[in-house]
Amino acid sequence: MAMDLSIATLLTQDGITNGAIYALLALALVLVFAVTRVIFVPAGEFVTYGTLTLAALQLGKPPGTVGLLSGLALVAGILELCSALRQREWRRLPKRLAFYVGAPLLIAGAVQLMAPLSLAFPVQIALTVGIVTALGPLLYRVAYQPLAEASVLVLLIVSVAVHFAMLGLGLWFFGAEGSRTPAFTNASLRLGDMTISGQSALVVFFSLVLIGVLYLFFDRTLYGKALRATALNRVGARLVGVSPTLAGSTTFTLAALLGAVSGVLIGPITTIYYDSGFLISLKGFVGAIIGGLASYPAAAAGSLLVGLLESFSSFWASAFKEVIVFTLIIPVLLWRSLTAHHHEEEE
């Protein structure tokens, strides 16, 4: 089949839509790495949990994430009790228990009770984003916070372990069959020969809105600035009273939010299985690597490039589409390694 304008438009549109979702994941990866030095391997699981939670709610079933959230909340509660016992410091315990146990159990309970009611689609989306986002700070508390001072390599190994644990739990909670959620809209816009689907436009729109909100958070609020400060200079941030725990917890909340929204956005585009997340997040990772795991605009641009490359290579050489996308990383790494010297000098 030869390429013509309508096919090119379609592929570009596909590429941009997927690229927008990869961009959200790339931002999550850059954010988590910059603030906590954790390579966020389980980013993809947050995507699948997002899609599959929404799919479960569509069927009126309480999603498995309810159990995971409750379990993590209890473990986090026990960890908080132990650390209070060890430090003999009880003053802060009630507030921490409210944050790590009370709030998550409240969300889990609400989702459990509301699931069988036939809720409106936007309410289901809100519940999905709520429950998956709530997993973020708990995951940080349970898996990463005890090792916050460890080396990047140790944190990476923890991340791989978390990834496999969440993968297994995903299979247990949601089963092996894939799910697809209904489209947000079936409307489409015709411009001469080109057709722009409303679904794609909405995905891009929501991604842009979320990126804009994050930009305002980092640029305008003191908490956002505190996260940037932690990424720039960890010692300096501690000296002004930004605790690594607060920074890590906030960062993981944002990353989980990005993952959950990506999951909701990608649900109508492709069928998502419990193990689809890794490949999706890997593409976000390629985008993030193009940005050197440091620059947000470069990561977003890189993700867009990944999306376009993927959609065009699926047209010309569909058997090789993953190969082509991941091969992209080689010249990028080569170029980065040649310019890396310059980066070290900046420090």
Binding site: L222, K225, A226, R228, A229, L232, N233, V235, G236, A237, R238, L239, V240, G241, V242, S243, L246
Partner: peptide, 30 residues
């Protein structure tokens, strides 16, 4: 460290530890 900062114990370290890529105003605000 954070609790000590909250009670008015502040350190200006030898290496300054400023937030280089942030504005003077933001450094102060933090």
């Amino acid at each position: 460290v954070e609790q000590r900062v909250a009670t008015g114990l502040c350190l200006v370290p030898e290496r300054r530890e400023l937030f280089a890529a942030m504005s003077v105003a933001d450094n102060l605000l933090l």
